[in-house]
Computed example of a mutant assay.
Amino acid sequence: MIRIGLVGVGKIAHDQHIPAIAADPRFDLVAAASRSQPDLGGLPVFHDIAQMLAEGPELDAVALCTPPQARRETALAALRAGKHVFLEKPPGATVSEVAELAAVAREQGVVLFTSWHSRFATGVPQAKAWLAANPVRTLSIEWREDVRRWHPGQTWIWQAGGMGVFDPAINALSILTEIMPDEVFVTDAKLQVPENVQSPIAGHVDMTTLKGAAITADLDFLQTGPQTWDITAWSDAGELKLSMGGAKLTIDGKVVVDGENREYPGLYDRFATLVAEGRSEVDVRPLTLVADAFMVGTRESVEAFIE
């Protein structure tokens, strides 16, 4: 039994982490830390991780669901206290801080897990296998969702380090880096930034591989009506499409996989396995692509975002 504490009890914790932990017999959620002090049915809730570590029950691991800007210090406190750490995506506000966390985890002899939940969508493994056998010529990402629906009141997204539209779009990049047999590189980007915030609300990213596959990503945080989370790849063998964030896979129009959402149970299954094996899993490739898009991207100021 892994005694785990949860830090940051917002929407994603309520919707995904708490149910996934409760459903996995290898975990026991014994404490939480949140400045909002939510009622979690008798579970002890502390103000922050420092208080939870000092005054709370004994822990083996900590899952961090805080905004990325506050992640580093919280993760360092947990690692230095000898706790295994599960990082919600994105694993940090910068690429270099994740490398620092990995180094501290090695020094402390504990596990660090950079979780990418979209990689556990049901269609991803078969898509990866198909692309390994059928080299991609071109690939298109369309990731369009309504920020007001999925991230209400989450002002941290619009601040420096919050990533704006890349907060959901990094899910697509996590799938991309998982299913592509070759490394992916950013070549250009165009970012639309509302005049009253620091992060983009929409954008276009051009990428490629060492073998010259052309990859594009069109991103929008103001999509109304049906939401779009699609990745389409073309090879000499045909067309592959992952839709619904990776839950549905079609090849040449034929449905191959159409499964239920079990991404977070998959994440906790992987975390339990890593803890049992004493092995960290740290992958910053999706975050690196975001950082590169910010570095090379041109910025266009657009009208202010008002929630």
Results as ranks from 00 to 15, higher is better:
Ile4His: 07
Ile4Tyr: 11
Gly8Phe: 00
Ile12Pro: 00
Gln16Met: 11
Pro19Ser: 05
Pro19Tyr: 04
Ile21Phe: 01
Ala23Lys: 11
Ala32Pro: 06
Ala32Asp: 08
Pro38Thr: 10
Pro44Thr: 06
His47Thr: 12
Leu53Lys: 12
Leu64Ile: 15
Cys65Lys: 02
Gln69Asn: 14
Glu73Asn: 13
Val85Lys: 04
Pro91Glu: 08
Thr94Asn: 04
Glu97Trp: 05
Glu97Gln: 12
Gly109Trp: 00
Ser115Cys: 15
Ser115Tyr: 02
Trp116Asn: 11
His117Ile: 14
Phe120Ala: 14
Phe120Asp: 13
Thr122Leu: 07
Ala127Gln: 02
Ala132Cys: 03
Asn134Phe: 01
Ser140Cys: 10
Glu142Asn: 08
Glu145His: 04
Val147Asp: 08
Thr155Asn: 07
Gly164Val: 02
Ala169Thr: 09
Asn171Phe: 00
Ser174Gly: 15
Thr177Asn: 15
Val186Gly: 07
Leu191Phe: 04
Val193Leu: 01
Glu195Asn: 13
Asn196Thr: 03
Pro200Thr: 11
Gly203Tyr: 14
Thr209Met: 09
Lys211Pro: 05
Thr216His: 12
Leu219Val: 01
Asp220Gly: 01
Pro226Cys: 06
Gln227His: 01
Thr228Ile: 15
Trp229Tyr: 09
Thr232Gln: 13
Asp236Ile: 01
Leu242Tyr: 07
Gly245Lys: 06
Leu249Asn: 10
Ile251His: 01
Lys254Thr: 14
Gly259Pro: 09
Asn261Gly: 01
Asn261Asp: 15
Asn261Lys: 11
Arg262Ala: 15
Tyr264Lys: 06
Phe271Trp: 12
Ala272Asn: 00
Leu274Glu: 06
Arg279His: 05
Ser280Ala: 02
Glu281Asn: 14
Phe294Gly: 04
Gly297Tyr: 04
Glu300Met: 13
Glu303Thr: 14
